[in-house]
C-alpha cells in the first residue's frame, strides 16, 4: 500500500471517535456493529455526546457500552424502556435512547415497550430485529418467521402451536404516544445511509418532545441462522423483508397509508 496516500486531504471516511477501540464482540457479518456505528456517528455529528445517555439491553448487544463511547446503562432483559423513561423524565433536556433485540423488546419486555410508547416518552428506541435469540444460541424469538428453524423450533415454527411472529413495530405505531416509526436495514450501503438518516431524524425530533421515535432495523444473525454472512443477507431480503417490509410506518404522528 502507498503510505504516501494517507494524508488529511485524501481522507474521505474515518472511524467516529464515539466508537471505542475495543474489538467488536459480534460475529463477522452481523448487523449489530453497523447499527452501533451509525448511531454514534449521528450523536457525534449532532455534537450531543454530553447530553446523551444510552441504554443497552440483554442480548448480543449487552456489551454495547463497551463500543459506544458515551455514558451508558446496562439494563436487565427487556427493561431498557423503563430505564430510559426514568432517565429522560429526570433529565428532560437530555437525549435518551434504548437499543434492544427482538427477544428483549418484543418478548420479555413487551409491557415496558408498549407502555413507554403509549406514555409517549420522549426517547429514541432502536429495535434490532433478527428474528432469533442470537445471544443464547439461536432459539425461537417472537419475530421468528413461520416455518423458520431455530434451536427451539427445530422442525420449523409451527404457528398453530408456537404462535405467530409479532409485528411489534406496526403494533406500537397504533399508539398515540409514538410520533415517528420506521423500519430499515443496514446490510447494504444504501440501507445504511437511509437508516442513518432515520436515526438522525429521530434524535432531532426527540429534542422537540413529541413522543417516542422508534426505529426497527431488520438485521441478520448469520450465526443463529446458520448461514454465511452473504447468504444470510440474501435470505433476509428474500424472507424477512416480505414479512417485515422496510419503510416509514408513521411520520409526524400520522400513520402512512399505502
Amino acid at each position: 500500500m502507498n503510505i504516501e496516500m494517507i494524508k488529511p486531504e485524501n481522507l474521505v471516511y474515518t472511524k467516529t471517535k464515539l466508537m471505542t477501540d475495543n474489538a467488536l464482540s459480534y460475529c463477522p457479518g452481523c448487523g449489530h456493529g453497523t447499527a452501533h456505528r451509525i448511531i454514534m456517528e449521528v450523536i457525534d455529528e449532532m455534537g450531543i455526546q454530553e447530553d446523551t445517555i444510552g441504554i443497552a439491553p440483554v442480548g448480543c448487544s449487552v456489551l454495547a457500552y463497551e463500543f459506544m463511547n458515551i455514558d451508558m446503562q446496562e439494563a436487565s432483559h427487556g427493561r431498557a424502556p423503563a430505564l430510559a423513561t426514568a432517565v429522560k423524565r429526570l433529565w428532560p433536556d437530555k437525549y435518551v435512547f434504548s437499543y434492544q433485540g427482538d427477544g428483549d423488546l418484543a418478548a420479555i419486555g413487551t409491557a415496558e415497550t408498549i407502555h413507554a410508547c403509549n406514555r409517549g416518552e420522549n426517547i429514541v428506541m432502536i429495535f434490532i430485529n433478527n428474528g432469533i435469540y442470537g445471544m443464547t444460541g439461536g432459539q425461537m424469538a417472537p419475530t421468528t418467521l413461520p416455518n423458520m428453524k431455530t434451536a427451539t423450533s427445530p422442525y420449523g415454527r409451527d404457528v398453530k402451536e408456537m404462535g405467530h411472529p409479532l409485528k411489534m413495530t406496526e403494533l406500537i405505531a397504533q399508539l398515540p404516544g409514538t410520533y415517528y416509526v420506521t423500519r430499515q436495514a443496514v446490510h447494504k450501503p444504501a440501507n445504511v445511509r437511509k437508516t442513518k438518516k432515520a436515526i438522525r431524524k429521530a434524535f432531532e425530533l426527540s429534542k422537540e418532545n413529541v413522543g417516542v421515535c422508534f426505529i426497527e432495523i431488520v438485521s441478520n444473525c448469520n450465526s443463529g441462522w446458520k448461514m454465511r454472512p452473504n447468504e444470510a443477507n440474501i435470505w433476509m431480503e428474500d424472507n424477512m423483508f416480505p414479512f417485515f417490509p422496510l419503510g416509514d410506518i408513521k411520520v409526524d404522528g400520522q400513520l402512512i397509508t399505502k
Binding site: Q73, A84, H115
Partner: peptide, 26 residues
C-alpha cells in the same frame, strides 16, 4: 420531584435503576 405510575413493579424498579444510575435520588 418526578412522580410516575409505572405499568408494573417490574417497570417501577427498573425506572428506579435508570434514575439512580443517572445520579438522581429515587
Amino acid at each position: 420531584m418526578v412522580v410516575l405510575q409505572a405499568e408494573s413493579e417490574v417497570a417501577s424498579i427498573n425506572m428506579v435503576y435508570g434514575g439512580a444510575a443517572s445520579g438522581k435520588n429515587v
